[in-house]
Amino acid sequence: MIQKLFNPFIQIAGAKSAIIGLAFLILSATLAAFFNTRFDGILDAHYTKHQSFYISYLDNLINIIVLTSVFYGFGAILTKGRTRFIDILGTTMLSRFPLFIIPLFNIQNQSGIIGEKIIQSITQPNAIQLTQFEWIYLIISGIISLLLTIWFIVLLFKAYKISTNLKGANLIVSFILGIIISEILSKIIIYQL
């Protein structure tokens, strides 16, 4: 069970994982639009005042395209063309599935309101303070969101490893570089559009 949660790619990869990943991507983008959440970067999730369906789907699409292109590029170079595009695409799409839970923390704009209060309390010392419930909500949702992001990174690492069969320093260094490049690229593309 644990292996299936942290490395489902031993059993599922390629087109099959792309289809499941696409279903989660649609779910994730739809929930993000409903609950005003922006996945504005491969590692980002921010709560906004209003989020359109178009922007929501576009954000998720850009994240997948950037991640797949960057990791396929590294894989193709380091394995001398032995990496299959469909494996990278499918496993990368499926690796993002834990993130669909994050928008649920913004039901009734709860996280957005807390976020605004925090910003106000920084700029205006006399602004409304957070209630005890809001503090608890903030801490719990923050911890769960962080754990979900870590889960996504672990899955992404396993996806890259199984799709390329890279080992040792080549695997670790190219993965870290891939994450950094993807984060920068996705941010630039999302805010240029």
Binding site: Q11, A13, G14, D87, T91, N165
Partner: peptide
Amino acid sequence: MGMSYPTMRNMLDD
């Protein structure tokens, strides 16, 4: 064997 294609291919490569 109920495994994914890249898993099997990696085993073969190894």
